[in-house]
Design a protein around this nucleic acid. Structure first.
Length: 435
RNA sequence: GCCGCCGUAGCUCAGCUGGUAGAGCACCGGGCUGUUAACCCGGGGGUCCCCGGUUCGAGUCCGGGCGGCGGCGCCA
């Protein structure tokens, strides 16, 4: 921090505590500019927000013309005095008498009409992220990750990092990104789950926060080809236990966001996040099917929910809820079958309410070697591709459960964003690989 | 992979039954004592996505391709 003092001794946030006439040095970027014959108004943007700068020809003298010609988005350092004025946005402004252009900007390409075009905005994402909405979303994202981190660390979890290059699929093989790994084929990871399962035999409780990659050509508002995946895995834990963890985590995140970034949430969402204190309802897959049939959907037991079904179901709730006990045929091989009802698995999805749908997915994993081997064979997969993953079952693997959460999906739900691509700095979709 | 919509100025879009291209924003010049997407006056700016066809003539009609968007399936 000491290094910054030569540049600034106040900022857009701290300035509201200073009295009129206080002299300040500020740094930032010219967010907007309005020029009159003898006055210029800048909105200065810095890390904390916005503050209006006023330059008038009397105070600036000969420099006025030069100052009024500073292009939008130039980086500047200014000196001036604090002045409260009801006409200033936020009620405080700085009357400047000294301006340094630290880095002059070219003509700013983002115009009001560009802002109306999502494609144009994402083509210029390296610049459009400077806007107030992206700023608020990305700050909220940072706070969300912080909150999740806090939850895990406070509860004695250990952070691990899993490899990004892998050799076999966790989810369906069709959605693997293939790449050249010297003279071999490798893939980008879809999930760190298998590596977490190895690590729980050291730490009992582990979590990861890292990207997962899925080559799904999904044209929807809830899919990215690269997303931030928060996953956790817990030893000596059953399916009920892991639903408790997911519920606690989501509640912790929501309540913490209200503390960390209340203004940003309100700016984007239009309202404060409602506190969640009620217990998340847990409905079985069978109940969900009945609800949907009652609502007139043509769906029968054993089918996975389509988008319409998921939306309709989640509109029935105003806080998140679990759907558990999905049919064995609809879930990946590693899910443990319910011992009392082998046609369903000990698995669940946590659904965001109000039509947003799935935000986490979890369940109990198979921990016995012979059981897992037979299920791999039953589902037509090749056991040789799961060598080490099977082998850890030979060396003291206790019952265990885990889940994965899509950060962009949670953020989309919490902030009511139109698309998950709005929830990340540089989104990757089937058609977008740049910038 | 499937279904639907779209492609004209940097951006948003208009362009009728085919007759040789327009507006707003942005940009440039000028004006303006307090702006909140400032305003007022003036100016420059085009491979009408590509290829082929019909026609005296295609932004417009027909065929094919490419690209984008929305949705489905799949998922976090």
């Amino acid at each position: 921090m000491a290094g910054l003092v030569k540049w600034r001794d106040a900022d857009s946030r701290s300035i509201t505590n200073l009295s009129d006439g206080h002299r300040v040095k500020l740094i930032g970027w010219v967010f907007t500019k309005r020029v009159h014959s003898n006055k210029v108004f800048f909105m200065l943007r810095d890390r904390y927000g916005y503050i209006q700068l006023v330059g008038d020809s009397e105070r600036l003298g000969d420099a006025f013309k030069q100052v009024s010609e500073i292009p939008v988005e130039s980086a500047i350092a200014v000196e001036g005095v604090v002045k409260r004025d009801p006409r200033a946005p936020g009620g405080v402004e700085v009357h400047i008498d000294k301006v340094d252009v630290v880095a002059r900007a070219d003509v700013w390409p983002i115009t009001p009409s560009v802002a109306k075009s999502p494609e144009a905005m994402f083509d210029l994402r390296h610049l459009t992220i400077r806007g107030p909405k992206s700023r608020a979303v990305l700050l909220t994202r940072s706070a969300l990750v912080q909150a999740a981190w806090e939850y895990f660390v406070n509860n004695d979890y250990v952070l691990i990092t899993a490899p990004t290059f892998i050799t076999s699929a966790v989810e369906g093989g069709a959605t693997l990104f293939e790449l050249k790994y010297f003279d071999r084929k490798a893939y980008l990871t879809q999930s760190s789950q298998f590596y977490e399962e190895a690590a729980i035999c050291v730490f009992e409780k582990v979590f990861v926060m890292q990207p997962s990659f899925r080559a799904e050509k999904s044209r929807t508002r809830k899919h990215l080809t690269e997303f931030l995946h928060i996953e956790a895995e817990v030893a000596f834990a059953d399916h009920e236990d892991i639903m408790d963890v997911e519920e606690e985590l989501v509640k912790y995140i929501v309540n913490r966001l209200n503390e960390l970034v209340p203004k940003e949430v309100e700016y984007v969402r239009g309202s404060r996040l409602p506190d969640i204190d009620s217990r998340f309802e847990r409905i079985s897959y069978d109940e969900a099917i009945e609800i949907l049939q009652r609502k007139g959907f043509d769906i029968s037991w054993g089918e996975d929910f389509g988008a319409d079904e998921e939306r309709a179901l989640s509109e029935e709730f105003d806080v998140p809820f679990f759907v558990y006990g999905f049919p064995t045929v609809t879930r990946s091989f590693y899910h443990m079958d319910d011992p009392t009802r082998p046609e369903v698995t000990l698995s669940s999805d946590l659904m965001a309410p109000e039509g947003f749908g799935e935000i986490t997915s979890g369940g109990q994993r198979i921990h016995e070697y012979d059981y897992l081997l037979s299920k791999i064979r039953r589902m037509g997969l090749n056991p040789e591709e799961y060598g080490w993953y099977l082998e850890i079952r030979k060396y003291g693997m206790p019952p265990h459960s885990g889940f994965g959460m899509g950060v962009e999906r949670v953020l989309r739900w919490l902030l009511h964003l139109p698309h998950v691509r709005d929830a990340t700095l540089f989104p990757r979709t089937p058609s977008r690989l740049y910038p």
